[in-house]
């Protein structure tokens, strides 16, 4: 009744909370050339779990910003300009906070839920697995 597949269908969160599900979704996104959205989503979760007093936190925040937001990649293109400015300013002013990526992550998550996740559930890669 609560098979992995049933859980994957429930929500994006359930899919990403399952090792096989996350792996298969990642493979799907690689084919769709937007795997950065998923890596960014996980990076935001990882950042939120970090000890904000650890000097590493600022370096990780900068690395996430540089890799996904500052460029013209798939994540950057999906984020609203004010959201990008908020992250950029937080880093510039060194106002590092556990929640500083939350708005950006929420926007990317909404895009994934509405697009990639729906496509995934009808994709060949998913149906073959089923």
């Amino acid at each position: 009744p609560d098979s992995p597949l049933a859980r994957w269908n429930k929500s994006l969160h359930s899919l990403l909370g399952d090792q096989d599900g996350a792996h298969l979704f990642r493979t799907f996104l690689e084919r769709e050339k937007c795997v950065d959205t998923l890596d960014f989503w996980f990076a935001c979760n990882g950042f939120r779990q970090m000890d904000i007093k650890d000097p590493k936190a600022l370096r990780v925040a900068k690395a996430i910003h540089k890799r996904y937001i500052e460029n013209c990649g798939v994540v950057s293109k999906q984020l609203k300009p004010p959201t990008k400015v908020f992250v950029r300013d937080s880093i510039k002013k060194q106002l590092i906070d556990s929640t500083m990526f939350d708005p950006a992550q929420a926007e990317i998550q909404l895009m994934m839920e509405d697009n990639a996740y729906q496509m995934f559930l009808t994709s060949d890669i998913y149906l073959e697995y089923v």
Partner: peptide, 20 residues
């Protein structure tokens, strides 16, 4: 000292489900 890429990868991996 860890490189930026290593730190980012470590951060992503730490959030992946069901680490073994």
């Amino acid at each position: 000292i860890d490189s930026e890429d290593d730190l980012l990868q470590e951060c992503i991996t730490s959030a992946m489900p069901n680490k073994k």
